[in-house]
Design a protein around this nucleic acid. Structure first.
Lengths: 213, 213
DNA sequence: CATAAAATACCAACTGATTTGTATTGTGCA
DNA sequence: TGCACAATACAAATCAGTTGGTATTTTATG
């Protein structure tokens, strides 16, 4: 089909220098992929698009200055042919949805395997959309209780509730979901707060965030 | 001094596979450094310490299962000679303090430059402690408003309040601190919530966390 | 100096969560 | 069988923050 091998040209945009360096080196091992530029933020990326036209952009969502989504929008407005894969540290449902809605071609977690990264990059380059399939979220059984939590001796139900609280459910919503009285939810929540020695919803949220439960 | 060149042996522990791969490759370019093992979580790391004794461990703080600090404690209890550099995505004062207090030898942000990484690794290997110097925190003037915030057009005062909210101050505490009426604080807060389009304190907290303001 | 924006202040109604109680029922284990 | 614990349910008091108003003073800018 092709006489000359067309390389897949890529620009990476991420403010984490180590990450970008690593990714760069990792991709250098692939004969069909060429990193033609790197950028530490959205502005840099857009600037380099003035002179360079990659097939694909790997775009971190959390960047200082210009938000990844703003950059995405710009790219899709001005260079609709360029494929964009959003990179994000955490598996956040709404970010994936947002990326999809705003025209990204793919979405990768930063803890993805090398193989997955390459597979997604190549698929997207060929015009496919690649997004993580959302895990069935709201089944009442929590995935696996984090071993770190063990020290606090939360009961099964309490651990389960934490999963909902993590998803920003209100007490009423949890009660509805689990077919419980809101009083029951309040009781569980009270016990959680006691066991974790926390004082208010924000502290609980920080606990959840910090330990990435 | 040395007839055979003693390489600096390193184990990396981080659940972000891409990051670890990248870091690994990056370090492979350094003749005096040898990555003898990698681990995707604390358990794996501790397990590999049964058979391997590195000079240095690069240890991510946020890992699933076993928290980075728990791992740190274990290492320092059982293998006090092994140097440990904590890795963290964000510049969080209390994490740095905690790392220091719990015996870590260094602390690096994941967005550090390659040069800084190597410098810190080598310094720590030679017995030095390397921690980021803390910025002066609680003066009422915010350090520098993150450029990302600009799109929301927060005023100076509003941006300032965000710094306190980030530190989990209540409205009353902020009022006291800034010699304002609590009503004033509530007004500012109301405007912040409107501008950021958020509904409750937890959402605000998540916003702050997510964008690391 | 005039005008707009920012900062300040207040109020009332409301929402959601916390705290401190009590109490009943179910369940697993010795 | 009996005990401890988990899970359920309820209620009243309280607290922190939100919402939607209004209103005055300060400050920056054309």
């Amino acid at each position: 089909m092709e006489s000359t091998v067309e390389k897949l040209s890529v620009i990476i945009a991420d403010d984490h220098t180590l990450f970008i360096n690593g990714l760069h080196m990792l991709l250098q091992g692939e004969p069909d992929i060429e990193v033609i530029s790197i950028a530490a933020n959205g502005k840099e990326l857009l600037h380099s698009l003035h002179t360079k036209t990659p097939n694909l952009v790997l775009l971190d969502i959390n960047m200082p200055g210009m938000n990844g989504f703003d950059v995405l929008k710009r790219i899709k407005d001005y260079y609709p042919k360029i494929k964009v894969i959003m990179l994000s540290t955490y598996n956040e449902e709404h970010l994936i949805e947002k990326a999809k809605a705003e025209g990204a071609n793919g979405y990768l977690f930063k803890n993805a395997e090398k193989a997955e990264l390459l597979q997604v990059m190549r698929s997207v380059a060929q015009g496919q959309l690649c997004f993580p399939c959302k895990q069935p979220v709201v089944n009442s059984m929590p995935n696996e209780p984090d071993p770190f939590l063990k020290q606090f001796q939360l009961t099964k139900r309490e651990t389960e509730l934490l999963q909902f609280i993590k998803q920003n459910f209100t007490n009423q919503q949890m009660a509805d979901h689990l077919h419980l009285s809101i009083y029951t939810v309040e009781t569980h929540r009270k016990n959680i707060m006691q066991k974790l020695n926390l004082k208010n919803p924000v502290e609980l949220n920080r606990f959840i965030m910090q330990y990435n439960l």
